[in-house]
Design a protein around this nucleic acid. Structure first.
Length: 257
DNA sequence: CCCTGATTCGC
DNA sequence: GCGAATCAGG
């Protein structure tokens, strides 16, 4: 691993976001050991560790430590949370499961994503509402379209995403997983892009407040920027990029970028 | 078993 | 400096 400025920056960024070391490693394409090692060397703030090593504190110091253990909370939620999503949405009933086979249903269709999470800002709530209603129409639309397009388009979408995110196998799916955006993160598959245009009207570019930090373009080059769309509550990415970032896999270790 | 983060230590 | 191996708690 050559630690370029970009990768270090990315490491720091993800570290500050509270991602687990393993998760950071997956996104950067290195092991968690490398992440921890580097973070340690960089002097990044330690996380609450699940263990105390013999080299460190005495046994008596243990009791004092116990109570301070407050976890990074939100991070732990992310995985489970996304797993739940496909079944949650009002809209999910319609096209997704039908179009994508059960074991590929990992790709929570965009329609399944953003809805219920509590949004701090009223502004966001509003946006969610818009999305929600839009989704309904999408769903209806897609239902009608399904007979002719289901065989081709949605399935392609399902397999295109993981393939684009990493060269690894796309079919093993049972757990939640963060896939690596390759250096240049992935143009979404065509069918998804179609959805996206409806679901995310170009309002996002002028939003204020938290913004999706999915990198677009090559870091260090003029065109590089971050997505900037409104992120999902509690996530660093917008709905679109969260769906790229969180991918189900049977075995995470197969998916290292 | 799975997960987690931290330390160690050979390279 | 790097990171695999290892540890140890949940």
């Amino acid at each position: 691993m050559d630690w370029t400025e970009e990768t270090i920056a990315r490491l720091k960024e993800l570290w500050e976001q509270g991602l687990s070391t393993a998760e950071i490693g997956r996104q950067i394409g290195i092991t968690k050991n490398a992440v921890v090692g580097k973070a340690h060397r960089l002097g990044l703030p330690a996380r609450p560790s699940p263990i105390r090593r013999p080299g460190g504190k005495s046994a008596s110091a243990k009791a004092a430590d116990v109570e301070k253990s407050s976890a990074p909370a939100e991070r732990t939620v992310a995985a489970a949370e996304v797993v739940a999503e496909p079944s949650v949405s009002v809209v999910t009933t319609a096209p997704a499961p039908a179009a994508v086979s059960v074991e590929n249903a990992l790709a929570p269709p965009i329609a399944a994503e953003p809805i219920q999470e509590a949004s701090p800002a009223a502004e966001v709530a509003e946006a969610v509402l818009v999305v929600e209603t839009t989704q309904v129409s999408i769903a209806a639309e897609t239902v009608m379209e399904a007979p002719r397009s289901a065989a081709a388009a949605p399935v392609k979408a399902a397999e295109a995403r993981p393939a684009a995110s990493s060269p690894a196998t796309a079919n093993a799916v049972s757990r939640e997983q963060v896939a690596t955006p390759s250096p240049v993160p992935v143009k979404a598959a065509a069918p998804r892009a179609a959805f996206r245009n409806v679901v995310n009207p170009p309002a996002e570019s002028r939003r204020r407040g938290p913004s999706c930090c999915w990198p677009l373009g090559d870091p260090g080059t003029p065109g590089f920027r971050f997505c900037g769309a409104a992120p999902l509550a509690g996530k660093p990415y917008c709905a679109e990029h969260a769906s790229l970032a969180y991918v189900k896999l049977r075995d995470r270790r197969d998916n290292v970028a």
